[in-house]
Design a protein around this nucleic acid. Structure first.
Lengths: 243, 243
DNA sequence: CGGAATGTTGATATGCCTCAACTAAAGTGG
DNA sequence: CCACTTTAGTTGAGGCATATCAACATTCCG
């Protein structure tokens, strides 16, 4: 009964109802824990993994590699997230998943998950829903990266990370971990390092936030959210976090 | 036994195995057919529909509305697609779906689909997979709109539409329907009308394609795909189309 | 303490935006 | 069927946000 599954459970409960037998079945899933170094790949583009990952600690990201070699980060994942749930039903990875900082991952064999789905359809639905929320986050990223000026885009990104960290219970009051370099922020938001640096100065000057040393500080949530044009409804969490 | 479901079936078969009883069950789903005018909304942001839509004809799009009023199109859907499958498990729409040209839609009650899923898990998995491929398309859109110059972005977009139309059997040899204005292309790719117009001229000058009158013509697929940095693997179709 | 990685800042270049005028094509009503 | 209006697309001029290149400052870490 790996305690680690409680982390997934907590995440699923944020949007889905599960019975006590669902929960028990989930808890009894076999898993292997693995630690990854910063920047180490967890799954690569083209792979066909036979396990799915749950993030237990640290930060993990999905990314594409462009022919130029440039990296485009697609999403960030923290404890409780299943960044490669899709490998259950799509054989080949169309993107890669890597650790951003040092990350601890729980790996669950597909066969075990599929057996659980058959026995406990409610769990399958909860994880399906999880993948659908992922898709909503991707859609928001399309809009964010295509339709907003860089300052707004950056603010929106910070809002999302902070909000998700809080919703998952992984934030201190007023701050959360966000171990990205400015180069990586650029690769996330489709922008260059110097532009990120300058946009960040603009944000800091609003006094609503700060970002340094891999830590995101939020001083004035309402202001930051306004600045970043952020509305959390796309995250589809049942009880909106108080911020 | 609405024949219209064969259109969905064909789509699902492109990536999933279904038994004859799965197919029979799918065919027996009740549905209502509805016609939508160009630009008419099928579902709106904030709605909680009790039915899911299958596109039977025409072109349909998902979109966000920005506070400025600007529209960001997120994806395009043609016959066989289920642009709002997610409403099965996510109550509230975080985006809207509209008809681009005149579109015919089949609406299936959620209750009927959910009952089918219970009876025929393979169908549930096929549709789950469908939503996962949707997510892969969103990811590609993030990369396309964030990481590539406008000409490339436009070429990539044309490649995707043409490839998907062919895969679904909705393309003539060398061309497919794509009833978008340049304004809409701009709202798709996060760009302005004049820039689209100029980028389009560049593409036309390569002699690999043309786009006019809502029709996309492909003269030299290999060239266009190269220009658009297009690799169809993210569409996860079992038998890659010959082009 | 020295070297590598990260971030800041400036100068210059450029892709794309905005505004605007104009052309072309597609309805619409007399 | 033709003028009238509307919508769509083209083209030009000027400006701005962001890219690129480069030098420097700072922090981190062995």
């Amino acid at each position: 009964m790996p305690l680690s599954h409680d982390i997934l459970l907590r995440k699923l409960k944020a949007h889905s109802e599960l019975s006590s037998s669902d929960i028990a079945a989930l808890r009894s899933l076999p898993d292997i824990e693995r630690r990854f170094e910063p920047d180490e790949d967890i799954v690569r583009q083209g792979d066909s993994p036979k396990v799915s990952a749950i993030v237990l600690g640290g930060v993990v990201a999905r990314y594409h590699t462009l022919p130029s070699g440039r990296r485009q980060y697609l999403s960030l994942h923290i404890a409780g997230d299943m960044p490669d749930a899709q490998t259950l039903f799509i054989e080949t990875m169309d993107h890669a998943v890597c650790a951003i900082d040092e990350a601890v991952i729980s790996l669950i064999p597909h066969v075990a998950l599929l057996a659980l789905f058959e026995e406990r359809p409610a769990v399958a639905i909860a994880i399906w829903r999880e993948t659908l929320i992922d898709a909503a986050i991707f859609r928001e990223a399309i809009t964010n990266n295509s339709g907003r000026p860089l300052r707004t885009r950056l603010a929106h990104f910070f809002c999302e990370q902070y909000y998700r960290a809080r919703a998952g219970g992984h934030a201190k009051p007023g701050s959360c971990r966000l171990p990205l370099t400015q180069t990586q922020l650029g690769e996330m938001l489709g922008s260059s390092l110097p532009s990120i640096s300058r946009a960040l100065h603009v944000l800091r000057r609003t006094k609503s936030m700060d970002f340094r040393g891999g830590e995101l500080h939020v001083f004035d949530w309402a202001k930051l959210a306004r600045f970043g044009d952020f509305n959390p409804s796309y995250l589809h969490l049942r009880k909106p976090s108080r911020l």
